[in-house]
């Protein structure tokens, strides 16, 4: 039926979005890529002169590469924590809850926080972890400590907990979808052949759910790598993620070429992570190849 539409009609439908994306998405990306290859003068003005200076700086100056590494490690930590936290819940809903309506209800409960404002969810941990917060109050009343702990809030720990909290739904959603797709008969077949719950879990459910787990973990990894708010809101003076560096370079430090370069490096890393994860998702997907 394609013939029913003239080329002009197609252009009419498609062109506004194409133009928009070029003007407001593609060109900005091209622009910072170009900017990352320039340098700035003493006043922070961008000097049009092509050089790889910024990139060299990133990979030779400890502040940059060490922060990059730390962010990567933190991201992995967050991703793994999210997986560990989501797995029991998703497994429970997918395999242990019998009634369909209860499944839907529980799944909705997982998805719901996904829609609640980032800032609100981050803020909740300030109340819980604060100097006079619930955790300290609780520890004081139980007599486990005598002075409120100040180091809980404003630390790497607080940042990680907050990110894990915020990103858990991102991990749980694809994970649940994957687990739910595993035919129940496979689980029964495993039991039929003499496998107990643990063997079934590790030999059947985990391998078959792997694509969903990978895709969830990738979400958490990528979103942590790009996060700069949690470290500001909950992190300590030394909690600095690579994105905070970008933010500073575009703000107080005012070195836009260097900031752009760091941004491009983050981008490249994320694209790499996404590619690797897509590769493994495909490799471990047992159902689609049939």
């Amino acid at each position: 039926m394609t013939t029913a539409y003239s080329n002009r009609a197609k252009a009419f439908l498609l062109l506004p979005m194409v133009v928009w994306l070029i003007a407001f998405l593609l060109l900005p990306y091209v622009f910072i890529f170009a900017q990352s290859l320039m340098k700035s003068d003493a006043f922070g003005n961008v000097v049009v002169e092509f050089t790889a200076e910024s990139y060299i700086k990133i990979f030779t100056s400890k502040l940059y590469y060490a922060t990059l590494l730390k962010t990567l490690m933190m991201s992995c930590l967050v991703a793994v924590s999210c997986v560990i936290i989501s797995l029991p819940l998703c497994y429970f809903i997918a395999f242990k809850v019998q009634s369909e309506s209860r499944k839907t209800m529980l799944y909705t409960l997982i998805v719901l926080p996904f829609w609640v404002s980032y800032i609100v969810r981050a803020y909740s941990w300030k109340i819980i972890l604060g100097q006079f917060g619930i955790l300290n109050g609780f520890l004081l009343t139980t007599g486990l400590i005598t002075e409120p702990l100040e180091i809980i809030l404003y630390s790497d720990f607080a940042t990680i907990i907050c990110l894990v909290y915020i990103l858990t739904p991102f991990v749980a959603i694809p994970m649940y979808t994957a687990l739910e797709q595993i035919p129940k008969s496979l689980v029964e077949a495993a039991k039929d052949l003499g496998a107990g719950s643990l063997t079934t879990f590790f030999r059947i459910i985990i391998p078959l759910g792997l694509p969903g787990i990978i895709s969830g973990a990738t979400f958490a990894l990528v979103l942590t790598m790009g996060d700069f708010l949690a470290p500001i809101l909950l992190g300590g003076p030394n909690t600095l993620f690579i994105s905070n560096i970008v933010q500073n370079l575009f703000g107080t430090s005012n070195d836009k070429p260097l900031g752009s370069a760091v941004g491009i490096v983050i981008l490249a890393l994320i694209v790499l992570v996404l590619e690797v994860s897509t590769y493994f998702e495909k490799k471990y997907s047992s159902f689609k190849s049939s």
Binding site: L25, L26, P28, Y29, S243, F250, I264, I270, L274
Partner: peptide, 23 residues
């Protein structure tokens, strides 16, 4: 391309727009 803003981190999109829009 249309998916880039949700697959790539917001901060990079943010600084890219910040740099380009005034131009």
């Amino acid at each position: 391309i249309v998916l880039m803003p949700i697959t790539l981190p917001g901060i990079v999109t943010g600084v890219a727009m910040l740099s380009f829009f005034p131009k």
